[in-house]
Simulated assay, not measured.
Amino acid sequence: MSTTECKITSFVVPRELRVNVLPRYLGHHYVTGESLVYDWATRLNRSYDGGRWHFFTLSNGGFYMAPAETGRVHVRWHLNGYSDMMGADAFGITVTLFALCHLAEKTLDDTIIERFHQLRQFATQHVEAANILRAID
Rank of each mutant, 00 (worst) to 15 (best):
residue 1 M to R: 07
residue 1 M to C: 11
residue 4 T to S: 08
residue 4 T to N: 06
residue 5 E to G: 00
residue 6 C to A: 06
residue 7 K to S: 13
residue 7 K to C: 12
residue 7 K to Q: 13
residue 8 I to D: 05
residue 9 T to C: 11
residue 11 F to T: 14
residue 12 V to D: 00
residue 12 V to E: 11
residue 15 R to A: 11
residue 17 L to M: 03
residue 17 L to K: 04
residue 20 N to G: 15
residue 21 V to P: 00
residue 23 P to L: 08
residue 25 Y to C: 09
residue 26 L to T: 05
residue 26 L to M: 11
residue 27 G to R: 05
residue 27 G to Y: 09
residue 28 H to N: 07
residue 28 H to Q: 09
residue 31 V to R: 05
residue 32 T to I: 11
residue 32 T to A: 06
residue 34 E to G: 05
residue 35 S to Y: 12
residue 36 L to I: 00
residue 36 L to N: 00
residue 37 V to L: 06
residue 38 Y to K: 09
residue 40 W to L: 03
residue 41 A to P: 01
residue 43 R to G: 00
residue 44 L to R: 02
residue 45 N to R: 02
residue 47 S to N: 06
residue 48 Y to C: 01
residue 49 D to H: 14
residue 49 D to N: 14
residue 51 G to V: 04
residue 54 H to R: 07
residue 55 F to L: 14
residue 56 F to P: 01
residue 57 T to V: 15
residue 59 S to V: 10
residue 60 N to A: 15
residue 61 G to F: 13
residue 63 F to R: 12
residue 63 F to K: 10
residue 66 A to N: 05
residue 66 A to C: 14
residue 67 P to C: 08
residue 68 A to T: 01
residue 69 E to V: 08
residue 69 E to A: 14
residue 70 T to G: 09
residue 73 V to P: 00
residue 73 V to K: 06
residue 77 W to Y: 15
residue 81 G to T: 08
residue 83 S to N: 11
residue 84 D to G: 03
residue 85 M to P: 00
residue 87 G to T: 04
residue 89 D to L: 13
residue 89 D to W: 13
residue 90 A to R: 03
residue 91 F to D: 01
residue 91 F to E: 00
residue 92 G to R: 08
residue 92 G to A: 12
residue 92 G to T: 08
residue 95 V to I: 14
residue 95 V to H: 04
residue 96 T to A: 14
residue 97 L to E: 06
residue 97 L to T: 04
residue 97 L to M: 07
residue 100 L to G: 10
residue 102 H to V: 08
residue 102 H to E: 14
residue 104 A to D: 15
residue 104 A to S: 15
residue 104 A to P: 15
residue 106 K to T: 06
residue 107 T to M: 15
residue 107 T to L: 14
residue 108 L to Q: 02
residue 108 L to R: 01
residue 109 D to R: 12
residue 109 D to L: 11
residue 110 D to A: 03
residue 110 D to E: 10
residue 111 T to Q: 12
residue 112 I to M: 09
residue 115 R to Y: 13
residue 116 F to N: 10
residue 118 Q to H: 01
residue 119 L to I: 07
residue 119 L to R: 03
residue 122 F to H: 01
residue 122 F to L: 00
residue 123 A to S: 08
residue 124 T to G: 03
residue 125 Q to F: 11
residue 125 Q to K: 11
residue 125 Q to C: 10
residue 126 H to Y: 15
residue 126 H to I: 12
residue 128 E to Q: 02
residue 128 E to V: 06
residue 128 E to T: 02
residue 129 A to Y: 12
residue 131 N to K: 07
residue 131 N to M: 09
residue 133 L to E: 09
residue 134 R to A: 14
residue 134 R to P: 02
residue 135 A to I: 05
residue 135 A to Y: 00
residue 135 A to R: 00
residue 136 I to M: 05
residue 137 D to S: 04
residue 137 D to F: 07
